[in-house]
């Protein structure tokens, strides 16, 4: 049902160490821990022996909707930076914002988790602290649920897994468009039966 060729739909790649950075900040949610573990190992292995000091790597983690892999991130002993763990994304973003506010231009931010988490962290770092998207990498992990904003009542549902879905704010049946706002971090949900009320197509799973 999605329309190919929508340029605003983000394309996520895997996290890779940016050797140009001096300070590496990792933020993850739920199953994003796996991506952070892999990245942390690659950072420690270094590039031509240029591995950053453990003190130049920081980890922020919340289980989110789960699974909680915080224990796995804490393993590895003192050779690895220990994660700061938070009960929810709000707490993580608040601490991350404070941490970045004291950082300099050599920071690289790596984010792994659900799509809603990725863009919540980007908003904290970009709009709150001023880090540019050039210094941020994202890897989407877990089920392909999307953050969608209802264009009618502006309610955002952070994890929509089907198009069509019912808006939790106004109850309209919404079609999920692939148009994405990097500023708001949401896709658009548009009333699907405005022309013929009650004529609502069967919901389809969103595959990506």
């Amino acid at each position: 049902m999605s329309i190919p060729g929508i340029k605003s739909k983000p394309v996520y790649t895997g996290l890779t160490p940016d050797p140009g950075g001096c300070q590496h900040v990792l933020a993850g949610e739920g199953p994003g821990a796996e991506a952070l573990l892999r990245l942390r190992r690659e950072l420690a292995e270094g590039n031509d022996g240029m591995a950053p000091e453990a003190s130049a790597v920081a980890l922020f983690y919340t289980a989110g909707a789960g699974p909680d892999q915080g224990e796995e991130l804490a393993e590895g002993g003192r050779d690895f930076p220990q994660p700061w763990r938070f009960p929810d994304t709000e707490g993580l973003c608040s601490a991350l914002g404070d941490y970045l506010a004291d950082s300099g231009m050599g920071v690289r931010l790596y984010v792994a988790g659900s799509e809603a988490f990725l863009w919540r962290v980007v908003a904290t770092a970009r709009d709150g602290v001023g880090i540019s998207e050039a210094a941020i990498q994202m890897e989407r992990c877990g089920p392909p649920a999307r953050p969608v904003c209802c264009i009618h009542c502006k309610t955002t549902d952070p994890a929509v897994s089907t198009t069509v879905y019912q808006c939790p704010g106004c109850g309209l049946n919404l079609f999920v468009r692939d148009h994405f706002s990097r500023r708001l971090g949401v896709y658009q949900g548009v009333c699907v039966d405005a022309e013929a009320p009650g004529d609502v197509p069967e919901p389809e799973e969103l595959d990506s």
Binding site: G20, G21, Q23, L100, G104, M105, G106, V129, G130, S132
Partner: peptide, 30 residues
Amino acid sequence: QPLGTHVYVCGPAGLINDVSAAATKLGWPP
């Protein structure tokens, strides 16, 4: 310099190279 800073250089090539090299060394995104 804090996050969100941009630097601009106008002058001879030597100065532009020096500033670019310093920015790279400090991890500034290009």
